[in-house]
């Protein structure tokens, strides 16, 4: 009898949580297509390089960033102008829902850049710049720039957006990634452009 009750309660709870989960997913989708889409596009393919593509982005990374916007830990100019306000009303549940929604979308296809730039970028991306103490991007962001957990997907991103982020890490306006601040410290503008172009093209 006890087992039956336990099973029944379990089933009800499971049904309840599935329903709640479905509702969260629906809510996240409504938020993404109704509000976020104005900049990031309905399926996470953004309308301009000022805004990142989110389709196929790592869920953990999106969660970390939304949290950092909400807590004002990430304060680059565009983060302040757009995302501080946007993230201010988000709950932990909606952040998780949004992160999962975008992670499940089909990523954008990367654009191939200039040949010499791509060649230099590939070298930096796969081998780093030993003389300047710059590690290979691939070591964290993956061979195909698909990212992993807290390390974001770079493949299919707008190259201009990646350049702006690297500049932000370098100048300190985007200060929520101490690892990246160290990585880009010695990189020249040309090297930044090359690495961003290659990573975005994957």
């Amino acid at each position: 009898m006890k087992t039956i009750i336990a099973l029944a309660v379990g089933a009800v709870l499971a049904a309840g949580s599935t329903a709640a989960l479905a509702q969260d997913q629906e809510g996240a989708k409504a938020l993404a297509t109704g509000v976020c889409s104005a900049c990031h596009g309905p399926q996470g393919h953004s309308i301009s390089p000022v805004f990142p593509n989110l389709a196929g982005q790592q869920s953990a990374y999106i969660t970390l960033q939304l949290d950092a916007f909400r807590s004002h830990e990430r304060g680059d100019p565009n983060a302040r102008a757009y995302m501080w306000g946007m993230a201010s009303q988000l709950s932990d549940t909606s952040i998780k829902g949004l992160a999962d929604y975008y992670a499940a979308q089909k990523p954008a296809v990367g654009e191939i850049g200039d040949k010499p730039l791509m060649a230099e970028g590939q070298k930096i991306y796969t081998q780093g710049i030993a003389a300047q103490g710059v590690p290979a991007c691939a070591s964290c962001h993956g061979k195909d720039a698909e990212g992993a957990g807290a390390f974001p997907r770079l493949a299919g991103q707008h190259a201009d957006y990646l350049v702006a982020q690297l500049q932000g890490f370098q100048s300190g306006t985007r200060a929520n990634a101490p690892i990246m601040a160290n990585v880009v410290r010695s990189m020249s503008p040309e090297q930044i452009k090359a690495a961003a172009t290659y990573a975005a093209s994957r």
Binding site: V35, C39, I47, F51, S88
Partner: peptide, 15 residues
């Protein structure tokens, strides 16, 4: 460009 987008969207983006 984003301002134009906001207008196109009917001034509805809201938090």
């Amino acid at each position: 460009p984003y301002g134009r987008r906001f207008k196109l969207n009917g001034y509805t983006v809201d938090i």
